[in-house]
Design a binder for these strands. Structure first.
Length: 856
DNA sequence: AACCTGGAAACATAT
DNA sequence: TCATATGTTTCCAGG
């Protein structure tokens, strides 16, 4: 545990950066927040963040050791800076504890103090504000930041989680509106409920108000003006994110270009949310602690702050969970299965935050999903009974296997529910993995909370060939209203019903390092209604063909109708549809699960390089599938060597229809032309350089930042051959990307884009390339916009990067200027086009717009 | 009796 | 502002 913390500290460096950034943001947020107890949050965040970054660097490979950087408490310091009111923070930390002790409920907000000043908060506040709530949002509405945050969102979400805790706490203290939604019911419900017990369902949530979708400020008001208060608790974690992400980010970006800043940002983002669980920085914890105070009390057995902190971190939910359900024990002990009785090796050291993008393979190791889960799984609400374990398409259950591991030591496979949108993979705020037990379950498991995310741990035994049948994992749906109230939460739940099962394994190496691998399943639609009505593409028989089209493509999936339309689209940099063509569907061969279409002729049959386009299936105005990737090739089938920046992306895209493409784009910034795979490697390689060299440039952009920090560590070690292999194997790619692993997500979003693109996150090897799933990952975000980048579909869009403040520079630096230009935009305009399929998209748009404003 | 589910009514928000 | 379309969450009932 400690180690983790320490690590975090070590990472701290970032923190300083963050401070700067934060400051800008703060003010505003602060205001918004009003109460913003959240402030405190901000503080915490810093710490968290820093860690993350560091972590990033350490990445997967981080030294197993407790890390190195134990000492660094600096993070905190930074935090202070951040917060401006170190004191506050401190207080908070302390206070929180006390409060916690009292009782969750009671806990007043230390926040009060924290809040003290908005300014302090600001950074956090921003986050918090959002998170704060909806309300905050309302207040802030202006703050795009909050919303914008989305990019990182995910991360926070978790962190933010505080929801309950915070809320409750806050409410109590604040008195104000405690309940107002945030605190009150909803949240509570969220955390508590989720884990603990169901509440009266509706009442609560309703109260909250249904959703405020922050976007619209108005709604929020309804709920609770005060929300700010709430924020306090949350804020901490949240704040980071917030700040980073969106608004702050944007604005900051512009202003601050330093790499450091970037790093800081990243750190924040990461931390906040995920937390890294283990690696959580003290501050973070503290904050979190506040919320969870109660938790800590309970848990602490371990004693150490850290440990406790972490636990706390997890939040109320965690803590609560622990208590209620499994109890503490779960954390530390695990009962039943022999496997659990053993101490787990990696637990303590700081592990990468859940929103970090990790490779699926490294060196000899490769984590693969041998059997993918079904594309639909109706999640259950807390108010319902379990709806069972996620199943495989062919019956049975998903299967995950770690290849290349020859040791005799069992490992632990972690599973959590991640997002499936176009942004980087991160824990899903509205869904949690649900542990299934019973006669029908053959796989032992136990759950822990990491940040706000429930993680199921499953033994990977050598005697079973490091293969696990995942028949112990269901999916729990949290009420949107509850989650949206969270302070840090930036995502909205409406129409955000696709998830991916994310598997991770941490392998300790003889040299003291730890290799962390991650693989995500194909997307799983969790909404009853969506599952019944939305067309969903599982796979396509062809990923590319010549610009003349004419070939037939078999699309398999679900909910196809006789009148389903298959539309090919190409988007311009600005997100507008440059070309749109409906493909001919052979109705004779129609089946609800399959469509045979004739690939339309591309608008320009003389293309000299591959062109990445998208297609989707439409059953009606709002019933549209996710974008699927498709590539038109020049006649002479060119192989992949991209000449243009432009081309590269496209090519990449081709490789994996889905996932990869985007990432690459993001990458562009980086080394430029290299094939995606290469990039990854490259990145890694360069990472350091960049970092050192010029952090500043990084600022905005994604590219550098991301790389830099994290990558460094990685590069040497990890990159394995795979990276090198350019091969466009779609399937593999993702993983390769992963190599990048080193990279942390955080930073970036930006960074993410760079590395991650790989989508590594996304799919795994086994997954179907075609599946949209991967795409989501891509995100690029180079700009904060990450968020924006619409999903999969828009390959084109990616380019936008430049638009936003930061990105551009980066790109240039990196040398891929041209490419950059390509970058996509995701302007809001697109909404129409996009059809708003995903909430994300919407959010993005908002963000983008926001960002624009900011900059402007 | 406890789970799982599928279906759908009751709610809510978005258009 | 109202009506309709959609999306979410809670209930019910059967296996």
């Amino acid at each position: 545990m400690k180690s983790a913390d320490e690590d975090a500290y070590s990472y701290t460096p970032n923190i300083s950066l963050s401070l700067q950034l934060s400051s800008p943001c703060l003010p505003t947020q602060y205001h918004n927040l009003q109460t913003s107890p959240s402030i405190s949050v901000s503080i915490s965040q810093p710490s968290s963040f820093s860690p993350s970054e560091d972590m990033g660097s350490m990445g997967y490979y981080q030294s197993s050791g407790p890390n190195g950087a134990p000492a660094l408490e600096s993070p905190r310091i930074e935090i202070t800076a951040y917060g401006q009111f170190p004191e506050d923070e401190v207080e908070e930390n302390n206070a929180p504890v006390a409060k916690r002790v009292n009782s969750v409920v009671t806990l007043t907000l230390p926040s009060g103090e924290g809040y003290r000043d908005p300014s302090c908060l600001s950074p956090a506040s921003s986050v918090s504000s959002r998170s704060c709530h909806s309300e905050a949002s309302s207040y802030e509405s202006g703050y795009s930041c909050n919303y914008d945050n989305s990019p990182q969102n995910s991360p926070w979400q978790s962190p933010c989680v505080s929801p309950k805790g915070s809320s409750s706490l806050l409410s109590g203290t604040l008195g104000t509106s405690p309940r107002q939604s945030p605190t009150g019911s909803p949240r509570t419900s969220v955390t508590d409920e989720s884990w603990t017990a169901p509440r009266g369902s509706r009442s609560n949530s309703p109260c909250v108000g249904k959703r405020k979708y922050s976007f619209s400020g108005n709604a929020s008001h309804k709920y609770h003006p005060y929300s700010p208060n709430q924020s306090p608790g949350l804020s901490p974690q949240t704040s980071p994110r917030l700040s980073m992400t969106e608004d702050t980010w944007l604005s900051n970006t512009n202003q601050y270009t330093n790499s450091a800043i970037v790093a800081a940002i990243n750190a924040l983002s990461t931390d906040g949310m995920t937390d890294i669980g283990e690696g959580i920085p003290l501050k973070t914890r503290k904050t979190s602690m506040e919320h969870s105070a109660s938790v800590s009390l309970k848990i602490e057995p371990g004693g150490e702050e850290t440990g406790s902190a972490e636990l706390c971190h997890e939040d109320y939910s965690t803590s609560r969970l622990a208590f209620k359900k499994e109890g503490y024990t779960s954390f530390l002990d695990v009962p039943h299965h022999p496997y659990w009785s053993k101490p787990k090796p990696y637990i303590s050291p700081s592990l990468p935050a859940l929103d970090w993008q990790l490779p699926s393979s490294s060196g000899p190791y490769s984590l693969q999903i041998e059997v993918q889960p079904k594309s639909h799984h109706r999640a259950h609400y807390e108010t319902e009974g379990s709806r069972g374990a996620v199943k495989a398409l062919a019956g049975g259950h998903p299967v995950v296997q770690l290849h290349g591991y020859m040791e005799s030591e069992p490992l632990t496979l972690q599973l959590f529910i991640g997002t499936a949108d176009d942004r980087l993979l991160r824990p899903h705020a509205f869904y949690q993995v649900h542990r299934i037990t019973g006669k029908t379950v053959s796989t032992p498991s136990h759950e822990i909370m990491q940040a706000n995310t429930k993680v199921l741990e499953i033994p990977l035994l050598p005697e079973s060939n490091m293969r696990a049948i995942i028949d112990c994992a269901g999916i729990l749906k949290l009420r949107n209203s509850d989650i949206e109230l969270r302070k840090g939460e930036t995502d909205i739940g409406r129409k955000n019903t696709r998830v991916r099962m994310v598997f991770r394994v941490h392998i300790n190496q003889p040299n003291g390092r730890t290799v962390s691998l991650q693989v995500a399943s194909n997307p799983i639609e969790c909404s009853q209604r969506s599952a019944q009505e939305l067309p969903l593409v599982d796979r396509q028989s062809v990923d590319s063909c010549s610009a003349t089209g004419g070939e037939r493509m078999l699309i398999s999936g679900h909910n196809f109708q006789l009148d389903s339309k298959v539309v090919f689209v190409e988007k311009g940099q600005d997100g507008h549809h440059i070309w749109e063509m409906e493909a001919k569907v052979e109705k004779d061969s129609f089946k609800p699960t399959a469509l045979l279409v004739e690939i339309p002729t591309y608008r320009n049959q003389r293309i000299s390089s591959p062109v990445l386009v998208n297609f989707y299936i439409c059953n009606g105005k709002r019933k549209r599938s996710q974008y699927q990737r498709f590539t038109y090739l020049p006649f002479p089938t060119i192989k992949t060597e991209p000449h243009d920046d432009y081309e590269l992306p496209r090519l990449c895209a081709q490789q994996h229809s889905t996932s990869l493409a985007k990432p690459y784009y993001a990458l562009q910034a980086v080394p430029a032309m290299m094939p995606s795979e290469h990039r990854a490697c490259v990145t890694a390689t360069y990472g350091p350089q960049r970092l050192t060299a010029k952090p500043s440039s990084l600022s905005c952009s994604s590219s550098s930042p991301s790389t830099s920090p994290k990558l460094q560590d990685l590069s040497p070690t990890h990159f394995s051959p795979q990276c090198l292999s350019p091969g466009p194997n779609p399937g593999l790619q993702p993983s390769d990307i992963s190599h990048v692993s080193a990279i942390q997500p955080t930073p970036g979003r930006y960074q993410q884009s760079v590395l991650y693109p790989s989508g590594s996150a996304s799919s795994s090897p086994g997954s179907h390339p075609s599946t949209p799933s991967s795409a989501p990952e891509l995100i690029f975000t180079p700009s904060h916009s990450l968020t924006q980048s619409p999903v999969t579909g828009e390959a084109t869009e990616l380019p936008k990067v430049p638009v936003r403040s930061g990105p551009t520079p980066l790109l240039q630096d990196e040398g891929a200027p041209a490419t950059l230009s390509i970058s996509i935009k995701q302007e809001p305009q697109e909404l129409d086009q996009m059809y708003l399929d995903d909430v994300n998209e919407i959010i993005r748009n908002d963000l983008s717009s926001i960002s624009v404003h900011t900059h402007a």
